[in-house]
Each structure stands twice: as structure tokens, then as C-alpha cells.
């Protein structure tokens, strides 16, 4: 790698990355290993966190809800976006615009909307959350998949699959999804990360998940809560890495 004029943007990017990501993370980590009033550093906050009886319950609950959100996102978005791209429909611009609405509509409006419109049996189940998380993650998930689908010759590939005997579902699962693997992984990552850390909507709808529990714990043990947050940061990272590893790595390059 040359060190010169050309690398200035890279250096600036790394510095910004350091300032906005590494420094806060490093500071949080440093805080999480403090011994409190005794002074010095140690792992007792982490040990306390994993010994907390509700720790695993809420972690598993949030992980499960996030996984369901990812599933809902993929099942709804992949066929919809595939159809939008293939049909060249004028609806595309409208749907593009609609997908951004969750960024401008206040979360409280979604929460109230859910209370009004969801049937009673959904409102009484924590499973209402994944549907709402899906809406919150929509702007990011939509764009990640949209970019992936734009980058491939979707029409030709799907028609080649269909003419060779694949139904629409099989064409999407066997051909399209593996070809847009990186976009799908990005969608999973974004949706999972947003869902597992979602707080406002969950609190407004009076449900308890990992982030709400951490807030509750922080009232009594701030250092312990930070240690829990650090562990929680690792969960999406590990799961997303697993998804990337479990998806067969094949040499995918667009033919030209």
C-alpha cells in the first residue's frame, strides 16, 4: 500500500471510524471492566452479568424475536423486490418512497397504530414486536436488497431458471438468493442489529426485552449494565458471522 496523496481519503476515513466507533466502544469497554469504588480493573461486572438469572432469558427472547423479524423481512421483501425489479412497474418509485416512511414517522405513531389496528390476539402476544421491528428496519433492509438486485441480470437469470424447469419459488431460492448473497447478509445484519437493540417501541407497547431489561438493571448497577451491553454487542456480530460462514462460499462474480 502506497503512503502518499492517494491514501489521504483512506486515512481520513480510518480516523473518522476511530473517532466515532472505536473510541466510544473502547471507552465503554474500559468502563465495563472498572472495579467501581475499589478502583482498578477486573472482570467482575461480566461475571455478575452472566450470573444474573434474567440475563439469558431476555437475551434468548430478544435473539428469538430478532430472528423472527429477519425471517419476516426476507419472506416479504425478497419476492416483493424481485417482482418490482422484474415488472419494471411504475409502482417502483412509489414503493421506494413508502419504504422510507418509517424514518420520518415517529415510533410512537407506529405503537399507537399497532394498538388500534392489530387484532386482540396479536396485541396480547410478544410476537407483535417482530412485525413492528420489520417496519422499523424496512428502510435499511429494502435498500440493501434493492442494491443487490440492481447489480445482477435478474431478468435473464430468473428466466433462464424458469425455462430450465424451476418454479418462481425455486428460482428465487436456488438462483437469485445465492447470487445476491452479500446483499442478503447485509439485510440480515441490519435487521437483526436494529431488532435486538430496539427499545422505544418495546417500552411503548409494555413488553420486556433485552434492551429494556438492561435499562432496568442500569438503575441499580451501571457498570454491570455496561458489561451486559458489551456482551449484547457481540451477539449480532457472532450470529451474522455464523450466517456468512454457513452460506456456502462460492465464487460469485457477475458474468460480463
Amino acid at each position: 500500500m502506497k503512503l502518499g496523496k492517494l491514501n489521504l481519503p483512506l486515512i481520513i476515513t480510518l480516523l473518522l471510524f476511530g473517532a466515532f466507533v472505536v473510541i466510544p466502544m473502547g471507552s465503554a469497554f474500559e468502563y465495563s471492566i472498572r472495579r467501581g469504588l475499589e478502583g482498578g480493573y477486573g472482570l467482575q461486572n461480566y461475571l455478575w452479568a452472566v450470573r444474573e438469572e434474567d440475563f439469558s432469558y431476555y437475551l434468548i427472547r430478544s435473539t428469538w424475536l430478532s430472528a423472527v423479524t429477519v425471517l419476516i423481512t426476507l419472506v416479504i421483501l425478497v419476492p416483493t423486490l424481485t417482482w418490482i425489479h422484474l415488472s419494471n412497474s411504475k409502482l417502483r418509485e412509489l414503493i421506494d418512497g413508502l419504504s422510507l416512511l418509517p424514518l420520518v414517522i415517529p415510533v410512537v405513531a407506529f405503537a399507537v397504530g399497532a394498538q388500534i389496528s392489530f387484532p386482540e390476539f396479536i396485541q396480547s402476544s410478544v410476537m407483535e414486536l417482530p412485525f413492528l421491528y420489520f417496519i422499523l428496519a424496512l428502510p435499511y433492509a429494502y435498500r440493501a436488497l434493492d442494491i443487490g438486485l440492481k447489480a445482477i441480470p435478474l431478468k435473464t437469470l430468473s428466466e433462464a431458471a424458469r425455462s430450465a424447469g424451476a418454479s418462481w419459488l425455486r428460482a428465487i431460492v436456488i438462483v437469485i438468493l445465492p447470487v445476491i448473497r452479500s446483499a442478503v447478509t447485509a439485510t440480515i445484519a441490519l435487521t437483526f442489529a436494529l431488532s435486538i437493540g430496539e427499545f422505544t417501541m418495546t417500552v411503548l407497547l409494555h413488553w420486556d426485552t433485552f434492551p429494556t431489561w438492561v435499562t432496568y438493571v442500569a438503575q441499580d448497577n451501571l457498570l454491570g449494565a455496561i458489561a451486559i451491553s458489551m456482551i449484547a454487542l457481540l451477539v449480532p456480530f457472532v450470529l451474522i458471522s455464523l450466517v456468512a460462514l454457513l452460506t456456502p462460499e462460492k465464487e460469485i462474480k457477475e458474468s460480463n
Partner: peptide, 28 residues
């Protein structure tokens, strides 16, 4: 539907599945 017609098609644009090997493409 197209997938039930049993018609082989070769397209103008190279339409091979990039995630499959040559053999897997032929056997698709």
C-alpha cells in the same frame, strides 16, 4: 407456465448462474 413447458432456452446475454459451476449449470 414456463417451467412446465420443457423447452430449453439459450439467451442473448450470458445467462449462466454465477454461483454454480459449469457442471452444476448444465445439470440445473
Amino acid at each position: 407456465p414456463a417451467h412446465l413447458r420443457n423447452m430449453g432456452m439459450v439467451f442473448q446475454a450470458y445467462s449462466l448462474f454465477p454461483n454454480l459451476s459449469v457442471e452444476e449449470n448444465v445439470a440445473f
